[in-house]
Computed example of a mutant assay.
Amino acid sequence: MSVWRNLGERTEYENPWVTVNMADVELPDGRHLDHTVIRVRPVAVAAVVNERNEVLLLWRHRFITGAWGWELPSGGCDGEDPAVAAARECEEETGWRPGPMRLLLALHPMPGISTSHHRVYWSSTATYMGDPKDAHESARREWVPLHRVPDLIGQGEVRSSSAVASLLMLHHLRSGPK
């Protein structure tokens, strides 16, 4: 079995949200290389689908990529139960409080360079609580028909890998047998 071995890391940069390390990696053939490792806190993601088979999405601009796109509410969960964090983020960012949260999937969006771990929870109910606390997080919040998800992804309107994977999984689960 060919395994890369991390023989140690040195920190190049650190703040409360991210640590960038340089790892001394030994390849299976004995060679060594420096490899960047980005360590970040875990992320909790919320997906809510209502009785009309619509999913609650945020339309937001990401300055890093310079692009607009649909996203699911999400945020860090430092020590907090991820299901609780996902529900909290959903309410803060959309104004909707989800019902019971169930694990939909867990993924590492960039396993070749980052420890980023996303846990996605979903609910089939939500109660509107009022304007979102974090309205600055998005330009708008909409209930988007789940059947539109493949087209939105195909048109590049969903850019986050966590959102793409989650929305396709929900689309599959809620579409039923053909």
Rank of each mutant, 00 (worst) to 15 (best):
R52A: 13
R41S: 10
V49P: 02
E9A: 12
A46I: 01
A46Q: 00
L58C: 09
N21Q: 09
V20G: 03
P73S: 06
W4Y: 15
R60Y: 08
F63Q: 14
R10I: 06
E54D: 14
H32A: 00
A47H: 00
R62S: 04
T36Q: 14
L57A: 07
E12K: 04
V48L: 01
E9H: 08
N6S: 12
P73Y: 06
P16Q: 01
E51Y: 02
I38V: 13
W70D: 01
W4H: 15
W68H: 11
V25T: 08
E14R: 10
N6H: 13
R5F: 08
L72E: 13
T65A: 05
L33E: 15
V43I: 14
E54I: 05
N53P: 03
N50P: 05
R5T: 11
P16Y: 01
R41Y: 10
N53K: 14
L57K: 11
A44S: 03
R52T: 03
R52V: 03
V18I: 04
A23F: 07
R60D: 08
V55D: 05
E12Q: 06
W70H: 11
H32G: 01
G69E: 01
N15E: 06
R10L: 13
V18K: 02
L27P: 05
E51F: 03
N6I: 10
N53I: 07
V25Y: 10
H61S: 03
R10K: 10
I64A: 13
D34P: 14
W4L: 12
N50C: 00
V49Q: 00
V18S: 04
A67G: 14
E51R: 11
H35Y: 12
G69P: 02
V40L: 03
V40Y: 04
V20R: 08
V40S: 12
L58W: 05
F63C: 04
E54Q: 10
N21E: 12
E9Y: 06
A47L: 02
H35F: 12
L33F: 08
T65L: 13
N50W: 06
D29G: 09
H35P: 01
Y13T: 03
L72K: 07
R10N: 04
P42R: 06
V55Y: 01
V55C: 04
R10H: 11
A44Q: 00
V55S: 03
E51L: 03
E14D: 07
E54T: 07
L56M: 09
A47D: 01
R60F: 04
A67K: 13
R41M: 03
E12T: 08
N21W: 08
P28G: 09
V18M: 11
E26F: 01
G8I: 13
W17Y: 09
E14T: 07
Y13K: 01
R41A: 08
W68F: 15
R31T: 06
W70L: 02
